[in-house]
Design a protein around this nucleic acid. Sequence first.
DNA 1: GTCGTTCTCTACATCGTTGCAGGACAACGA
DNA 2: TCGTTGTCCTGCAACGATGTAGAGAACGAC
Lengths: 349, 349
Amino acid sequence: MTASGLSRSGNVTMHDVARVAGVSIKTVSNVINGYQYLRPETKARVEAAIDELGYQVNVAARNLRQGRTGMIALAVPELRLPYFAELADSVIQAAERSGLRVLIEQTGGRRDREVEILSGSLRHLVDGVIFSPLRLGDDDRELFDVSFPLVLLGESIFDTGVDHVTMSNVQGAAAATAHLVAIGRTRIAAVGSHPGETVGSAALRLQGYRQALEAAGLPYDPALVAPADAWHRSTGEQAVQGLLDAGVAFDAVFAFNDALAHGTLHALHAWQLSVPEQVAVVGFDDIEESAYSTPTLTSIAPGRQDIADRAVQLLVDRAAGVAPSDGAPALVVAPYELHVRQSTTPIVA
Amino acid sequence: MTASGLSRSGNVTMHDVARVAGVSIKTVSNVINGYQYLRPETKARVEAAIDELGYQVNVAARNLRQGRTGMIALAVPELRLPYFAELADSVIQAAERSGLRVLIEQTGGRRDREVEILSGSLRHLVDGVIFSPLRLGDDDRELFDVSFPLVLLGESIFDTGVDHVTMSNVQGAAAATAHLVAIGRTRIAAVGSHPGETVGSAALRLQGYRQALEAAGLPYDPALVAPADAWHRSTGEQAVQGLLDAGVAFDAVFAFNDALAHGTLHALHAWQLSVPEQVAVVGFDDIEESAYSTPTLTSIAPGRQDIADRAVQLLVDRAAGVAPSDGAPALVVAPYELHVRQSTTPIVA
DNA sequence: GTCGTTCTCTACATCGTTGCAGGACAACGA
DNA sequence: TCGTTGTCCTGCAACGATGTAGAGAACGAC
């Protein structure tokens, strides 16, 4: 239907369009790029030829010529984790508003894949990279000194000279813990720690947890802190299982993300412990699942859409050569919100 | 650290490498592409120059020259829906095994965006497209006559002359319904229908549902069929809410996907109806969430990783010019599995 | 000693687009 | 009448890589 007769438009170039329209190839280019000095008549003739031939700009050629690709990369651990899926969704939407497409790279939380992201193989493929590292830490500072626009998501601790968009890890975690304290819990388990880590979400959220305990005058009991390397439902379940098996007594759980929290709910249910009556649970991330689980999950909403918007905007600015006025890397901290749901609300109604 | 002194490798080209190594630019190209006739000495000299300058191939230039980009696009409704997130994860992994990267496009289930996917704007950007359409149907056949490698996911009904990788929608739905019948349910609600649709997952799953009812000698009651346009948790909740509000009696729900099923569980819980005792629930997709919800959800596993692998493989073959022997478009139907969990298992233990 | 083969490297054209410079012509004010 | 400015269009040279063709050396076989 579209192209005259032949619907499979072979490989039409500007050359062909120019010949059909009886103009120079450059004029075709001008029409496509909306150059202002064009007779309406010429423009119409070129557009007619474009339609007739079913011409499509060769993006590869344009990319080469312009040095820009109109694409950005988003590097995350795994889309399988709901938080990152929802984040990707938000980033894609934000990018679309800026006319950008999004290439997604999964690092699988593997260090070598994370290093590879920074290695520059994406340099000529995308205009910038939004990167949520998991395994890179304080010792890897120099890896972040890259030659392409880069925005980091997640932790904000290590100053890499790179733009950051982050969430209120410490304060959010403290708020989550304080909420548990406020409803009268005193033995609050923390699920998802990464022993030995000093930067990164796990360390920060643990820090917030400890701060809140201290502020409440509650003791910090290491036995209540359960490690979980990957923050999946399965690892959350195992971690809580471990606490229960070990006979550790607790009346609340602060899970470092919602996936862990859902694993926690699952484990508690298996042990026939009622939530929130016997054990209250709070998560972090506020994924959609948490508003529908049984019981629904109280969680810290880290401002996901906001984070995505700001990250894309930073990238666009950097790519356009706009630097923050003071020359220092930007640091954006999205505000969090505590969403209280059934997992911390004794059913009264 | 990497590049001599300067870590920000400006814009090094093969030319620069060639000059430093004292060879022709083509030899540099040969080294990079592993051409066999190279003196080890020459090769070493070039590689040293590459390291010294921190040279990275300009992918845009290579793309233009070769007409291939090493990228494929995956077009799905929304990553926010767990099924598509998990599918994207699987596709990215499969693509990686073939050395391909994945660009993700979200159609948001909007018809115009779906048409746009087929319009060809991606032609020169990727080597092929994996497309899971939601709104395009029988009337849009000619839109699928595109000039780039395309693999469709999802429904298989309308014969577009395009390769399809699909799941056993009808049989899976029938199996789900039959399972409910087998545990003694007779008033089985179906959640997620798209009234008026004749192709597409909703129509097929409804068809399977009706087949199973008929096979069991149960009447088909339209009052038990609840429409839900988008298959989200929220719409599932609303649909079931609607049934309950209308006073429709039912002892089981077959939700057309797991998100709807989780919305269903949520609604039932709010009405204090016990699952599975009063109402048994089965979903479709077998997302990870379903193995952790309370109760865990019985679901049809559509062979997601298999679907992803086959789709990528088809695309790779097509891009390489390999066509199925008979010239007809390929049709792959992944086998399904019924995963029985608590939502249909009266607790006996 | 000539021929054919195998090995190693190079020169050149080319992929399809856009930036730059400039030509031709009309309209304008001085 | 002569510049000057504005409008409309064109030609050429890039962007940075790779495919093709072929040159020159080294080798063995006749």
